[in-house]
Design a protein around this nucleic acid. Structure first.
Length: 334
DNA sequence: TACATTTGACCCGA
DNA sequence: TCGGGTCAAATGTA
């Protein structure tokens, strides 16, 4: 598996920096207008955030290359969904706080970080974005002042491996294409993740040996077209479909059990999938960082979920890099 | 039969 | 006291 050379990295960072500058300029120009000001601001922040994180990722990759390469193929980054549009990361609170084993209904004070996930309904399936974990729904609540209920999920391996990770999924009030996903706690169910990573290594190595370029073009700030993704699915091993795909089911019934909460959109027939389970098509994995320095912590807390970038002929697959061993403290899992 | 989801009740923290 | 997070029995599904 090849890593990017220093020259390539500089080129990429140069291009990204240029894009960031353009976005900044656009932001300045947009300050003149008043229509949908807030939406424009949010969009611009997202664009800038994406560029910043991409640059930091590349920068950190440079540091990784000079440090300890890991045999584990990147799952953390590669699993970052590219068919979703996280609008921004809202918070990271106390990532260093200790996990608690919840033996009662006592409210947890686990590390918490959230995502806002935008989905698109008009183009249908946008690719499998399994975050590598299996989630099991354990509750749903109507939230005061919210139009949509909040669904609660915990790691399937909670009983078998004591994994304390949970997440909450709630549809945004003002835009039903946006879901807020709040993650809590770190996964301790590492065995499955290692297995997942090994499978990626094997498949990717095979692909590389055949000199087949692993390329997927998901432009920052833009949405990958469905057809494009389907095409790339054939050659991009990190994308996979669940063995038992959810078909012809109303998204609402998969997501929230209260059908009236959906606003006039037909989500039947494979349009997209629940972000909540292991069959997620737009769930966002976020991995707490303990010992990797501020840069990476910032990246993780302020995610750029684009697995791959494309600049004309320059296609980069982040899947070629290994972050998992750097992001995750092995002692947390064994 | 095993596992996942639903849902009302319970419990805790603000 | 109330809202939110979790439990656990009932129910659904493969």
């Amino acid at each position: 598996m090849e890593k990017l050379g220093a020259l390539d990295r500089e080129t990429i960072m140069s291009v990204l920096g240029e894009g960031r500058d353009f976005a900044n300029e656009l932001k300045r120009k947009l300050e003149i207008t008043s229509d949908s000001r807030e939406a424009c601001d949010n969009l611009m922040e997202n664009i800038l955030s994406s560029y910043e994180n991409a640059i930091k990722l590349l920068d950190c990759m440079g540091m990784l290359e000079n440090s300890v390469p890991s045999p584990m193929v990147a799952s953390n980054v590669s699993e970052l969904p590219n068919s979703i549009e996280p609008t921004h990361s809202s918070e990271v609170s106390d990532l260093n706080s200790k996990d608690q084993t919840h033996k009662s209904k006592k409210r947890k004070t686990l590390p918490k970080w959230s995502e806002q996930v935008r989905v698109r309904s008009e183009t249908g399936l946008e690719g499998h974005l399994d975050d590598g974990y299996n989630w099991r729904k354990y509750g749903q609540k109507d939230i005061l002042g919210a139009n949509h209920p909040r669904a609660y999920y915990r790691c399937t391996h909670r009983t078998t491996q004591g994994c304390s990770a949970t997440k909450q999924v709630q549809r945004a009030d003002n835009d039903f294409h946006i879901f807020e996903v709040i993650y809590r706690g770190k996964h301790s169910c590492m065995l499955e993740r290692l297995k997942y990573n090994r499978e990626n290594i094997i498949v990717q190595k095979k692909e590389n040996d055949e000199e087949t370029p692993i390329t997927i073009t998901t432009e920052p700030g833009l949405k990958a077209e469905n057809q494009e993704l389907v095409t790339n699915l054939d050659k991009f091993p990190s994308f996979s479909f669940p063995s038992t795909p959810i078909e012809s089911k109303n998204l609402e019934t998969q997501f929230f059990s209260e059908p009236n909460n959906f606003i006039g959109t037909n989500y039947s027939s494979n349009e997209f999938y629940s972000p909540a389970t292991s069959d997620s098509y737009f769930s966002l994995p976020r991995y707490p960082v303990n010992d990797f320095g501020n840069d990476f912590a910032e990246i993780i807390s302020n995610p750029t979920p684009y697995t791959n970038l494309s600049f004309g002929d320059l296609d980069i697959s982040f899947d070629q890099f290994d972050f998992s061993s750097q992001l995750l403290d092995a002692s947390d899992y064994f």
